[in-house]
Design a protein around this nucleic acid. Structure first.
Length: 875
RNA sequence: GCCGGUGUGGCGGAACUGGUAGACGCGCCGGACUCAAAAUCCGGUUCUGGCAACAGAGUGUGGGUUCGAUUCCCUCCACCGGCACCA
């Protein structure tokens, strides 16, 4: 028999074979249907993590399966190479981000190759290369020309000590991560893209994406957040001048219940009122401290202070006090809201806290409007109903009231119906070094001047090392100082760079024409796009996918690409978790231990009862499972595993352990189990090959000419029905764990098939060939070696998916389950073509069933053909 | 706080369209082989009672629809992801 399963040798051999054939280099081929399979490209953080391995294995299985189905399959790979971690690494090690990034790319590329992914490396791109990011700049300038890009102020986290802008991630408990200084919100000029112009289309088109998970479409729809309502104004006078306070409401029917208005701390009215009100000024300062994070703002205690200013109710003319509220978002609507405590929960609590009046103006259907004494908020208060205490609007329902009020406001010039979006324009300016330079020049004489196309790309200098105190580009005269292209005078270059989401919003199109240095994309993009299958983490469900959909639309509208939706089918894979083990140290600190250093203890039933550190044999605490991270010391290095078990075992384990969309819990035993399966498969093939002459099978032999034994027929049925299931799981369902389980089951069946006749051997050959081909997308290296062992000289990578023999599937006896009142009481075998009556009779004749229905009245007998019989009996 | 999701044996999971709950694997228990160990192979393994046949219970909680619910509806609980400058 062949020497033991040696993954290292087999995998090198298979990878060399594919390389020699240039098996994964594809071009536009009109003779086959195209299939574009794309996994989200990685950030080159240093080494692959298990999330990457999972992501790319899923993509590779689909790629190889679709190739076997006869498609011209493209699977490219690139690097999302700009970003904050490179700057952090630069600070820590005094190495320029570029060096760090390129080193990481080189290492990680080697790891991807070792895993045997069917990637067309000739299309590789890295977003930090000028050949790539020049097209970010080029398209940005086109957007500027069309008014899609524009300048306005935006709010950022400001570290007053380091004098620098912080990312949300760099703000910890409201303090700067390096300085510990209290972070402030600060307004600075930035560039924005008008994604809101596309809001309606981005929303509507979600209905045309049946290949996307429902939950992702729902999340995007909620994020875009269309609400229909009324935009209205409260007039007021300030320093003798008539002005309007604008608010938006979805509940214009409650307008007569307004007892106050609230504005955001950043609102001009708040700023004005604070001038001679130190208490208010202090409150506004307090609101401006802390982060710009919505999650934190939303969980803060609702606080407010009166401005001392009043506005006029647009219908009643009543005087309404204006408050500053820390819960009012400057970024949504007008930065001001009308307060209706009787019918809005947040306003209710605000009014209770500050003693503002509560006026009920809606009677929800079937309730008593005597609710003025309400002490506690009830959810009915927020429901639709009929107007009361609202003068001429009394008795109107929601829609009628909104219409009437909107009309009256319109005739006064104080309001109209309005569609408000939650979605905000996309701010792309980042005050950071390691990103794509924004191609603008600021000239004292000419203003903001675009860099002329012929001067693109604006190349980012690669040798700088940031020190945490502001953007090093601003301190580099060779970059920042320049000549104004318009007047020739001396000018300053924009030193902000672009959000890295810009880089990732179109890379999938660039793969189609990666080598074109004359254009962003070309006609090849129209051949490959849209991406047929996109695979990536659920954490990208909103931002990256929405920005990509927007960017693709912009390119479509500029005539650069023919499609509007970039991703036809989306698979959002779950995260990879691992155990966390820790111990409290003397000083109340917590020390984390890698699961590889820990021995788990079980009781006689196999339940986990404790864990000890291998080094000192003393107990450690199990803290549950979390995503792999450095801080919890629960990472697993894919490279170590590939070296120890081989790429195939790692791939197999990843695909077998959980369905692709679920979280995956790491376990070392599981990888060993996968390796055990690989050895078993190897042995089964080689044991067969030793006694079998060659690759001849029973495929195509018909029962008209051949008399199979029952065992032979059962074996062939098992093999071919597994082929049906695996094809369906890999193709339609895209769940790989059940496909692998089905193959394992088939191997268990085959191990029990002991027919060593000539025909028996041919059936074993046929079954093993099917197994090897079914596993080819998942464990491609071993499959190639075993395919050869089974007597084939042709490379497995060029084989089509095997064909099912329909005759092998035919079943002539089926087992019927018998229930009495829904409880399982027996089973009976009947001919597959048995009639309903025959099945019923057989079921009622079963002795066990007789026992349960004896002496009872049969009320009903339900027969589900081929499945079960349920006998319903009375008491 | 808002939006989205998940919950099934000791563990990961299966049950696809409302029809046998626990496929497949891990762990554990027992056996074979071995001087011994590893590897491998065979058998067992939801819980409770019983030698067994079998019976009862059982898919986070409480309720509902149905001949029949892990699957559909409502309530509550727990956990996870996103919240616009992490990628």
């Amino acid at each position: 028999m062949q020497e033991r399963y040696d993954p290292a040798a087999i995998e090198t051999q298979a990878q060399e074979l594919w390389a020699a054939k240039r098996a994964f280099s594809v071009s536009e081929d009109p003779s086959k249907p195209k299939y574009y399979c794309l996994s989200m490209f990685p950030y080159p953080s240093g080494r692959l993590h298990m999330g990457h391995v999972r992501n790319y294995t899923i993509g590779d299985v689909i790629t190889r399966f679709m190739r076997m189905q006869g498609y011209n399959v493209l699977q490219p790979m690139g690097w999302d190479a700009f970003g904050l971690p490179a700057e952090n690494a630069a600070m820590a090690n005094a190495v320029p981000p570029a060096r760090w990034t390129y080193d990481n790319i080189a290492y990680m590329k080697g790891q991807l190759k070792a895993l045997g992914f069917a990637i067309d490396w000739e299309r590789e791109v890295a977003t930090c290369q000028p050949e790539y990011y020049r097209w970010n700049q080029w398209l940005f300038l086109r957007m500027l020309e069309k008014g899609i890009a524009y300048k306005k102020t935006g709010v950022v986290n400001w570290d007053p000590v380091d004098q620098t802008v912080l990312a949300n991630e760099q703000v910890i408990d409201g303090k700067g991560w390096r300085t510990g200084a209290l972070v402030e919100k600060r307004e600075i000029p930035m560039y924005y893209l008008r994604i809101t112009d596309y809001a309606q289309d981005l929303l509507d088109a979600l209905n045309d994406l049946p290949g996307w998970p429902e939950r992702v479409r729902t999340m995007q729809a909620n994020w875009i957040g269309r609400s229909e309502g009324v935009r209205l104004s409260f007039p007021y006078e300030l320093e003798g001048e008539k002005r309007l306070l604008g608010v938006f409401t979805t509940r214009a029917d409650t307008l007569l219940g307004v007892t106050f208005c609230a504005v955001a701390a950043e609102h001009p009215l708040a700023t004005y009122a604070a001038q001679d009100n130190p208490e208010l000024a202090a409150f506004i300062e307090e609101c401006k401290r802390g982060t710009a994070m919505e999650a934190e703002l939303a969980m803060m205690e609702k606080k407010g202070l009166p401005t001392g200013l009043f506005v006029t109710h647009p219908i009643t003319g009543e005087s309404i006090p204006v408050w500053v509220g820390n819960y009012v978002l400057m970024t949504y609507g007008e930065g001001a809201v009308m307060g209706v405590p009787a019918h809005d929960e947040r306003d209710f609590h605000f009014a209770k806290k500050y003693g503002l009046p509560i006026r009920f103006v809606i009677a929800p259907a079937g309730t008593d409007p005597a609710q003025e004494v309400a002490e506690e908020w009830k959810s009915e208060f927020g429901e639709y109903g009929v107007c009361i205490n609202s003068g001429r609007y009394d008795g109107l329902g929601f829609a009628q009231a909104v219409n009437a009020i909107a009309q009256d406001l319109q005739s006064k010039g104080l309001g109209e119906k309005h569609v408000q979006w939650r979605l905000r324009d996309w701010g792309i300016s980042r005050q950071r070094y390691w990103g794509c330079p924004i191609p603008l020049i600021h000239c004292v004489a000419c203003g903001d001047v675009p860099v002329p196309d012929e001067d693109l790309p604006v190349v980012l200098p690669e040798g700088l090392v940031p020190d945490g105190s502001g953007n090093p580009l601003a301190k580099t005269p060779s970059f920042a100082q320049c000549i104004c292209p318009k007047c020739g005078g001396s000018a300053k270059r924009e030193t902000d760079t672009m959000d890295t989401f810009v880089d990732s919003s179109w890379y999938f199109m660039r793969f189609a024409s990666a080598n074109n240095d004359q254009a962003m994309v070309d006609e090849r993009a129209n051949y490959w796009m849209p991406v047929d299958q996109y695979i990536g983490g659920i954490e990208h469900a909103i931002l990256h996918l929405l920005y990509s959909r927007f960017w693709t639309r912009v390119m479509h509208d500029m005539g650069l690409i023919s499609i509007k939706e970039p991703f036809q089918n989306l698979l959002t894979q779950g995260m990879v978790l691992n155990d966390i083990y820790s111990r409290k140290t003397g000083e109340g600190r917590i020390q984390y231990f890698n699961p590889a250093e820990v021995e788990v203890e079980f009781d006689v039933k196999g339940a986990r009862v404790g864990a000890r550190l291998k080094a000192d044999n003393l107990p450690v605490e199990w803290e549950g499972m979390r995503t792999m991270s450095k801080s919890k010391n629960n990472g697993v290095d894919p490279q170590k595993l590939v070296n120890e078990y081989g790429a195939d075992s790692v791939r197999l384990f990843m695909m077998f352990k959980a369905p692709p969309e679920d979280t995956l819990e790491w376990s070392d035993e599981g990888v060993e189990g996968a390796a055990r399966f690989m050895r078993r498969l190897w042995r089964m093939v080689w044991e067969h090959v030793e006694v079998n002459a060659g690759p001849s099978t029973t495929q195509g032999e018909s029962k008209d000419t051949v008399e199979f034994t029952d065992a032979q027929r059962d074996m062939r049925r098992a093999a071919h029905s597994t082929l049906v299931k695996v094809g369906d799981d890999l193709g339609r369902r895209r769940v790989f764990n059940t496909a692998i389980a089905a193959v394992m089951e088939l191997m268990n069946t085959l191990a029990k098939f002991e027919d060593r006749s000539e025909r028996g051997c041919r059936i074993v050959q046929e079954t093993l060939e099917l197994i090897v081909q079914m596993l080819a997308p998942i464990v491609p290296h071993a499959s190639q070696a075993l395919w050869q062992a089974l007597g084939h000289s042709e490379a497995l990578i060029d084989r089509a998916w095997p064909k099912v023999d329909p005759e092998a599937l035919i079943k002539d006896v089926v087992e019927i389950v018998i229930q009495v009142n829904g409880k399982l009481r027996g089973r009976v075998n009947v001919p597959a073509e048995a009639s309903e009556d025959a099945i019923r009779a057989a079921a009622l004749a079963d002795p066990n069933v007789q026992k349960w229905i004896e002496g009872k009245a049969i009320r009903k007998v339900i027969v589900v053909k081929g499945k079960l019989v349920n006998v319903v009996v009375g008491a």
